[in-house]
Design a protein around this nucleic acid. Structure first.
Length: 252
DNA sequence: AAATTAATCAACCGCCCAGTT
DNA sequence: GAACTGGGCGGTTGATTAATT
C-alpha cells in the first residue's frame, strides 16, 4: 500500500519556490540537494534544485551581456578545451556553464552562418590558404563539420586510457596558435561585435529576472520559511541564519 | 496590427564519476 | 570489490521574447 506520491514539479520556478530554495541552501549548504529537495517540500528533484541555484539563484552570478573580454576568453578557452563548459565557466567568474553554453550556441552559430555566407559558393577557392587544407582554424572552431565532427564536438581534451584502464584527461596542444585564431576571429567579428563599454563593471540587469528573492522582505521570507520548516525542525531551534551571500551556512 | 520567423535562455534528460555502504 | 547513490556535466528541448515581414 504505497502512498500516492504527488508528482514531482517541473518547469519554471515560482518566486515562492525560489525563496524557499534560497533559504534552505543557506541553511544546509549547496551540496545536499536531495536532502534539500525533500525537507524543503519543494516537490522538485535535487537536481532541479541544484540547477536552479547554480544557474539562477547563486548570489555571485553576473547578468547581462557578455563583455568583449569574456567573449574572447570563451573563444580562447573553447579552442583549448572544447565543450568543457563547466571548466570554461570556472575561468569566468559569475558566469555559468549553461550561460556560456547557450552563448556559444547562439553567437557562434550566428557568426558561423555569417561566415558561411561570406565564403559562399561564388568563390570556391578564395578562402583557402593551402591547397590541401581548406579549413581554417576558425572554421574548425565554428564549423567542426568541416572537419567531420559535430557542431558540439570541437575537440579539446583527449582521453587517454592508462594501462590500468583508468581514463585520464590529457590536454591536447592544437596545431595552431591563438594569434591565428584571433586573426580569424577579428576578421569575422569586425562587423558583428560592438564593443561593450568597460569590461566587467557595466552590467544591466534584466528587469524581470535576476534574483527575485532578494526583493522580498526578510519578514515574508521567514514567514514562508517558518511554515515550511515547522514540520521537521523543533521550533526552538530556528537557526540564526546569517544572510551573507555567497556563502552557505550550516553551522553545527 | 497581425502573423511569422529567429534568437534567447531556463530547465530537463541521460550519462558518467566519485564517494559511500 | 561490487552495488548503490548523489552530484556534476554536456547535450537538447521548448517556452518566451524580439525582430521582421
Amino acid at each position: 500500500m504505497k502512498m500516492v506520491q504527488e508528482e514531482t514539479r517541473k518547469g519554471p520556478w515560482t518566486e515562492q519556490e525560489d525563496i524557499l530554495l534560497v533559504n534552505f541552501v543557506h541553511l544546509f549548504g549547496d551540496r545536499r540537494w536531495d536532502f534539500i529537495a525533500k525537507v524543503s517540500g519543494l516537490n522538485r528533484t535535487g537536481k532541479s534544485c541544484r540547477l536552479r541555484w547554480v544557474n539562477y539563484l547563486h548570489p555571485g552570478l553576473k547578468r547581462g551581456k557578455m563583455t568583449l573580454q569574456e567573449e574572447r576568453l570563451v573563444l580562447e578557452l573553447h579552442a583549448k578545451w572544447g565543450n568543457r563548459w563547466s571548466r570554461i565557466a570556472r575561468k569566468l567568474p559569475g558566469r555559468t556553464d549553461n550561460e556560456i553554453k547557450n552563448y556559444w550556441r547562439t553567437h557562434m552559430r550566428k557568426k558561423a552562418q555569417q561566415r558561411k555566407q561570406d565564403n559562399s559558393p561564388s568563390s570556391p577557392s578564395s578562402n583557402c590558404c593551402s591547397s590541401s587544407s581548406t579549413v581554417t582554424t576558425v572554421d574548425l572552431m565554428l564549423f567542426p563539420d568541416a572537419g567531420k565532427a559535430s557542431f558540439y564536438d570541437t575537440g579539446g581534451l583527449d582521453h587517454v586510457t592508462t594501462p590500468e584502464g583508468k581514463k585520464i584527461e590529457v590536454e591536447e596542444e592544437k596545431g595552431y596558435s591563438m594569434d591565428d585564431i584571433w586573426k580569424d576571429i577579428d576578421l569575422s567579428e569586425e562587423n558583428t561585435i560592438k564593443p561593450v563599454s568597460n569590461g566587467y563593471s557595466n552590467f544591466s540587469y534584466p528587469s524581470i529576472v535576476a534574483s527575485p528573492s532578494w526583493e522580498y522582505s526578510l519578514d515574508s521570507v521567514w514567514r514562508i520559511f517558518e511554515e515550511d520548516t515547522k514540520m521537521f525542525l523543533p521550533t526552538n531551534q530556528f537557526p540564526p541564519c546569517s544572510y551573507e551571500y555567497g556563502e552557505a551556512f550550516l553551522t553545527g
